[in-house]
């Protein structure tokens, strides 16, 4: 997931990305010496919560649906990206690892975002697996363990500090954490912790707000950008009132087709992979934001699970005005299943 953002950012960093040289999944390393994901992964924790500098791209991606004391809904995002100019790590300024991060708070009326950049090797940013800490500048997601984290970020007009407590197991997408991204075989390692309970404080222009809710953390790393014919990306993480959860994404192709995939997560954390064809996502309504049309109401159907819902943005203007801009914000789910979640959309030019 989120390849598109990373692809664009990597392009910004101008690391050469010859599409033909990327090779297929499971081929070991690519032309530039980056490791590539292989099927049947065996994860080791807590080590795999940390960084994998031999892979080109990686992220720690947290989104939260929160509620204030008056019942006002809020969304929160905290993302740390790693993008390597070359495999491996080095001390000091020599480090080829580029780190950058996005943080945002969404209210029904407003959307506040900020971003940070750093280089590895100096200590300005990094991820340590045990005890877990991911940081860039003063932004931080850290705790005794991966199940018990404190999250903080600050921007020119907002700040937050939220406690996260895991109330369920890690969830592995695709084939045991090996998630295929295209018919050509591009793939990534991908697992999530979608069971965080969240409580904390948002600092907004109007003052401080105490909030509670739930959060979803995605971990993903790979070395392969999207296939050459993939232009953009729509990604959903939904939590239904029944306790079940759904991760679904579709990669849009230049020919108008899509490659869709997802994971059905039962309340106890057991999963069922949804392959291409098992789900459909159809835009229902577009909003003009930042000079372009972005679909902010969707029809999402998973026939095998009798899911037929509409997904609507809490704030259709949840535009991330960052170096590489995209749409990311909290959503409301109605229809066969009610609930809430997060939506990310990239590649809408």
């Amino acid at each position: 997931m989120r390849h598109e953002t990373l692809l664009a950012l990597t392009a910004l960093l101008a690391a050469p990305l010859p599409a033909g040289a990327q090779g297929f999944a499971g081929m070991g390393t690519d032309a530039e010496g980056f490791a590539t994901p292989a099927p049947d992964p065996r994860f080791e924790f807590p080590a795999d919560h940390g960084a994998h500098p031999d892979y080109r791209i990686e992220w720690w991606y947290l989104t939260a649906n929160l509620e204030g004391p008056e019942g006002t809904a809020y969304g929160l995002q905290w993302t740390l990206f790693r993008s390597a100019l070359a495999p491996g790590e080095a001390e000091g300024w020599e480090s080829p690892q580029i780190w950058f991060a996005h943080a945002a708070v969404t209210t029904p009326e407003a959307h506040h975002a900020a971003e940070r950049f750093a280089r590895g090797g100096t200590g300005q940013a990094g991820v340590r697996p045990d005890p877990f800490a991911a940081w860039i500048d003063d932004w931080r997601m850290a705790g005794e363990s991966f199940d018990d984290l404190t999250l903080r970020a600050t921007g020119p007009e907002f700040a937050y500090e939220v406690e996260l407590t895991a109330e369920g197991p890690l969830v592995f997408h695709g084939d045991g954490g090996y998630s295929v991204k295209s018919e050509a075989g591009q793939a990534s390692y991908y697992y999530s912790q979608p069971f965080y309970r969240a409580a904390g404080t948002l600092t907004l222009p109007g003052g401080e707000v105490a909030v509670t809710g739930s959060a979803w953390l995605d971990r993903e790393w790979s070395s392969q950008p999207l296939a050459a014919d993939q232009t953009g990306w729509d990604w959903f993480s939904l939590t239904f009132e029944s306790g079940a959860k759904l991760m679904a994404f579709q990669l849009r192709q230049t020919d108008g087709g899509t490659f869709a995939s997802g994971t059905w997560i039962a309340p106890d954390g057991t999963t069922e992979a949804l392959g291409d064809g098992a789900l459909t996502a159809t835009p229902l309504e577009e909003t003009q934001v930042a000079g372009r049309m972005v679909p902010t109401r969707w029809r999402l159907e998973v026939p095998a699970r009798d899911v037929a819902v509409t997904v609507a943005a809490l704030n259709p203007r949840s535009w991330m005005d960052t170096s590489v801009p995209y749409w990311e914000g909290p959503v409301r789910v109605a229809g066969s299943h009610a609930g809430r979640g997060y939506l990310e959309m990239t590649g809408y030019e």
């Binding site: 910004l12 960093l13 101008a14 690391a15 050469p16 100019l85 070359a86 080829p96 580029i98 280089r119």
Partner: peptide
Amino acid sequence: APLATFLR
């Protein structure tokens, strides 16, 4: 002058 040239 891309960043990679500058940094690497």
